[in-house]
């Protein structure tokens, strides 16, 4: 019933001599939300950042194995990383709107990728802000600085900025960890909305969030995937003891 979007095969990552990810295998279907859970330092963020090759910036980053997106190895020789990151957007733990106006933030990706037409720019910005459930709150102050927004609004702005360039996949690295409960709920609603158009991979420390907003869950521990499956199965009937311990809050 699902079309495969991301296929991870025997993927290993180390920084210097420190192996962070050990032999990761994972299948992520299209138009689903996959939650990555696990205690701090278990490698889930490193894994997430491997999917849009953000780890490339660390000079001591080493990996082997492959990540296929639509059947193409993103670590292959002919891959244009800049183009890859256009297709695989990312929302960070800490909202990081650029120090420019709200409008310019959402238009940023479009502009650097060469869109000049004013009307099309405006329409896309408007559509993206609407999709990110932010339009109503800020439509009268598009020219205000993005940094004048609240934390939750800033994070939704970052989501709008990401979807403005129509990526296929959106990676979210604990997008709600710095937000209040109401903003968190808004973003979770948004995630459920977004999966109609995008494939979403979500790193979260919040078990309730994983349960509420994801279809699939993978549990990471010490750089390994301990258990993967449908979220409802993982939370109601985990196969591994470690998974159960973590979900029930016995450690982590």
């Amino acid at each position: 019933m699902f079309k495969l979007k991301i296929n991870v095969k025997n993927f290993n990552v180390s920084f210097s001599d420190n192996q962070i990810l050990k032999n990761i295998n994972m299948k992520i279907p299209k138009n689903t939300v996959t939650a990555l859970i696990g205690p701090s330092g278990c490698g889930k963020s490193t894994f997430l950042r491997s999917i849009n090759r953000m780890n490339d910036f660390s000079s001591n980053f080493k990996r082997n194995g492959s990540i296929y997106v639509d059947g193409e190895d993103i670590y292959g020789e002919n891959v244009d990383v800049v183009d890859l990151r256009k297709r695989i957007g990312m929302v960070f733990q800490k909202a990081n709107p650029f120090p420019m106006s709200i409008f310019e933030n959402v238009a940023y990706g479009l502009k650097i990728h060469g869109l000049k037409d004013k009307k099309e720019l405006f329409d896309t910005v408007k559509r993206s802000l609407k999709q990110a459930a932010l339009w109503g709150e800020i439509k009268d102050k598009l020219d205000s600085s993005a940094l004048s927004l609240s934390g939750g609004q800033q994070q939704r702005l970052c989501i709008a900025r990401t979807i403005a360039i129509s990526p296929e996949v959106i990676l979210m690295d604990e997008p709600c960890s710095a937000l209040d409960p109401i903003s968190t709920l808004k973003i979770e609603d948004l995630i459920c909305e977004l999966k109609r158009d995008y494939t979403i991979v979500l790193v979260t420390h919040n078990m309730q969030q994983a349960k509420r907003s994801s279809d699939l869950t993978s549990f990471f521990l010490d750089g390994e995937v301990i258990e993967s499956g449908l979220t409802k199965d993982i939370f109601s009937n985990p196969k591994m003891e470690k998974t159960e311990d973590y979900i029930l809050g016995r450690f982590g």
């Binding site: 849009n52 953000m54 910036f57 800049v82 183009d83 890859l84 990151r85 256009k86 957007g89 990312m90 960070f92 800490k94 990081n96 709107p97 650029f98 120090p99 940023y108 990706g109 650097i112 990728h113 970052c158 900025r161 990401t162 360039i165």
Partner: peptide, 14 residues
């Protein structure tokens, strides 16, 4: 802060 740089790269900026 590094987050600005990462934000840019994640948008596919050179």
């Amino acid at each position: 802060p590094e987050i600005y740089k990462e934000g840019c790269y994640a948008m596919g900026a050179s």
